[in-house]
Amino acid sequence: MIKQLYQDWIKGIWRNNPVFVQLLGMCPTLAVTTSLINGIAMGCATCFVLVASSLMVSVIRRLIPGEVRIAGFTIIIATFVTVAELFLAANFPLLSKTLGPYVPLIIVNCIILGRAEAFASKHSPIRALADSFGMGVGFTLSLVLLGSIRELFATGGIIGTRILPASFENWVVMIMPAGAFLTLGFLIGLFNMIESKLKSHKVTMSQGHMTQVKNS
């Protein structure tokens, strides 16, 4: 049971990473990752909505008739997003202003409806919790990676502290959507390259193992 839960959770981080593998949630990924802090904030907000809505969908999965399930899921997701948005505006006004219209847009983030439909509505709450939490963490990590790279080149540092030498002229393109697309493209390419190297390594390993078994 624990092993299954662990599998449910870990796949959201690497093998089925929502941003680099499933290419879902592109809108907030590209729009708000102008800095590491923004990445964390959006990631956490999305994670909260993901976990809360997946949990709720899973709990009431036998009560919602199939025909209205999407409508039902959307009501649930929209409610949690609005709660998150109001909470952010009330307690972190600066962050709320920076993230702007992209917080309400979490409602249409494909990851959330996708996981609700594909997993949470078909499995027990505890498994739905593991799955959605994994996706949320994977999403947040991706945003943090993207955000820190963009912030590093756009301001010369991360979280306000300068890292690159003073002679480095800031790359303005990194603040803009164009820079987001470029960075994301390169990261996806890097991801795929690592993934294919790991896969071919696994194949040669297993081939070596098979020859060993044959010889023994």
Binding site: L63, I64, V68, I75, I76, V83, L86, F87
Partner: peptide
């Protein structure tokens, strides 16, 4: 009935959240 209940719960929670925020 299901959608009505969901809508009601949603509306209620949001009103309380708004009062707070």
């Amino acid at each position: 009935a299901v959608l009505m209940v969901l809508g009601f719960i949603s509306g209620f929670s949001l009103v309380r959240m708004e009062e707070y925020a």
